[in-house]
Computed example of a mutant assay.
Amino acid sequence: MADFETKSTNLYSQEDVQRILQLAIARQADDQDKEFSYEQILEIATELDISPDTLKLAEKDWRSQHHEIQQRQAFNTHRITKFKKRFGKYAIINSFLILADFIGGGTLSWSLYILLFCGLALGLDIWNTFQTKGEEYEIAFQKWHRKHQIKQTINSVVNRWFKALQA
């Protein structure tokens, strides 16, 4: 008990308070598999002397960040799916070339060079696919995101057009 009393006289920075409360809420949610309603969040904010307007702005920021995280996860899934397709093509083509080389001469000779150079390209592809930080990743994500938004816009316009035709 004396240990807690000495710690309770310590001062904590805002960042430390946020982290401590975040861990406490996460622990409580894990213990009870509990989700919080907006009213409960508002009550907690009120107890922490956080205004409802500040809470609404924080929730808006959180929704925006959450949406971007979901978009990045979708982009990463898209990149991995494309990589798996390229890897499958690499495996099929190189297997065929190795088999042709072996059948043609009884040994492996020229197909190993092709395998080596294609393996180098595959290694670079692996690096680019699983590298999720940096300027190149951001450029690729922005390009994919714009393309994805354009598709969504076109789909919604076409759907509205079809609904108008059906009416």
Rank of each mutant, 00 (worst) to 15 (best):
I80L: 11
F162A: 12
L122Y: 06
T77G: 09
G105I: 11
F162E: 13
H145Q: 12
R146S: 05
H78S: 14
K143E: 04
G123R: 02
E136A: 09
K84N: 13
K163V: 06
Q131S: 14
E135S: 15
N128M: 04
H148W: 02
Y90P: 00
F83E: 03
L124C: 12
G106W: 11
E135M: 10
I126V: 07
T153L: 10
V158A: 15
L112T: 08
F162K: 07
K82S: 14
T129W: 00
G88V: 00
R160M: 07
K133I: 14
Q142T: 07
F117N: 11
L124D: 15
L99G: 14
E138M: 01
H78R: 03
N155H: 12
I114H: 03
S95G: 03
G106I: 14
S95V: 06
I150F: 03
I92W: 04
Q131I: 10
Y137Q: 04
R160N: 10
K133D: 15
G106E: 09
K84C: 14
H148K: 08
T132G: 03
F102P: 01
Q131F: 09
I93L: 05
N94M: 05
G134I: 03
T129Q: 02
A100G: 01
I114E: 11
N159F: 05
D101Y: 07
H78V: 01
A140W: 00
I114C: 05
Q142G: 01
S111C: 14
Q142L: 05
Q131C: 13
F141P: 08
R86K: 04
W110E: 11
I126C: 01
N128T: 11
F162H: 11
